[in-house]
């Protein structure tokens, strides 16, 4: 009994110290990535190549899901608003929901599972097949050659993807609300323009997606770099990337929202 308890305490302490250790290691890793970022801007074609894989290849999923999220918002919003005779406010409802919350958050979640997992798997496999050690042997810093371009490509792509998601979502809401249901087109757009503020709503949405981009790609590159160099290690690192970055997007979203939209 006592021995059992002893082992439990040991295990908890071990896990705790391990987590703190990993956090410190992640901090050092992020610092080194920022220090080594010069290469990814001096040799920008490295970053361009990564933007192609993280950003351009995510376009289809972002465009399609943005369209469908907007169409669902159009249907559900109309359903609720017409009970109060306020169906002309459909435009402002769809736009605010997308620009403030759904755009940045859903785009970041999709980005984490589409691009984040790919980044982790790629870097993890590079480590497992000892490509990273080979680079070090050739006096090429793998952090500035492999990690930093991927990090910056994610940070650049995320706000653009979220903006495209928002635009497609508003178009989807327009399709359902105006074209299909027949809400007045003039009031749809004019109420949207009157209700959505450039600085308060759109800028805060862009800031959100920027922060999510940093969080998701930082987690993805770190998990890849830190993964055990085995097939099993890479697969569990990929899973951890999706889980951790989705959770941190949702938690960060709450924190940012509570700072940005206090409801006056």
């Amino acid at each position: 009994m006592l021995e059992h308890l002893d082992r439990l305490i040991r295990k908890t302490g071990h896990a705790g110290i391990d987590a703190i250790w990993r956090l410190g290691y992640a901090g050092k890793f992020m610092f080194l990535t920022l220090i080594g970022s010069g290469t990814s801007f001096r040799r920008f074609h490295l970053t361009i190549r990564e933007i192609y894989f993280t950003g351009v290849r995510s376009l289809i999923i972002i465009v399609v899901s943005g369209l469908f999220v907007g169409m669902v918002l159009g249907l559900q919003g109309y359903e609720t608003l017409q009970r109060y005779g306020a169906s002309s406010s459909l435009g402002v409802m769809v736009a605010l929901a997308l620009v403030r919350e759904l755009g940045p958050v859903v785009a970041a979640l999709l980005f984490a599972s589409r691009a984040g997992s790919a980044i982790t798997a790629e870097i993890g496999l590079m480590k497992a097949t000892e490509q990273l050690s080979a680079m070090e042997m050739m006096a090429v810093d793998p952090i500035s050659r492999v990690v930093a371009p991927r990090f910056w490509s994610g940070v650049i792509s995320m706000p653009l993807l979220a903006a495209i998601f928002n635009t497609m979502g508003i178009f989807g809401g327009y399709l359902i609300g105006v074209v299909l249901i027949g809400v007045d087109e003039g009031s749809f757009w004019s109420q949207m323009q009157a209700g959505v503020d450039l600085r308060y709503d759109i800028m805060n949405g862009v800031i959100k997606s920027f922060v999510f981009g940093i969080a998701v790609t930082a987690i993805a590159v770190f998990e890849g770099y830190d993964s055990p160099p085995t097939a099993e290690g890479v697969s569990s690192a990929t899973t951890r990337t999706v889980v951790t970055s989705s959770l941190s997007v949702l938690i960060l979203d709450f924190v940012l929202t509570s700072f940005m939209f206090r409801g006056a």
Partner: peptide, 13 residues
């Protein structure tokens, strides 16, 4: 992406 941001700024906001 930049076009989408501009569209949001000009047409929506």
């Amino acid at each position: 992406g930049i076009g989408a941001i501009l569209l949001l700024a000009l047409k929506v906001g």
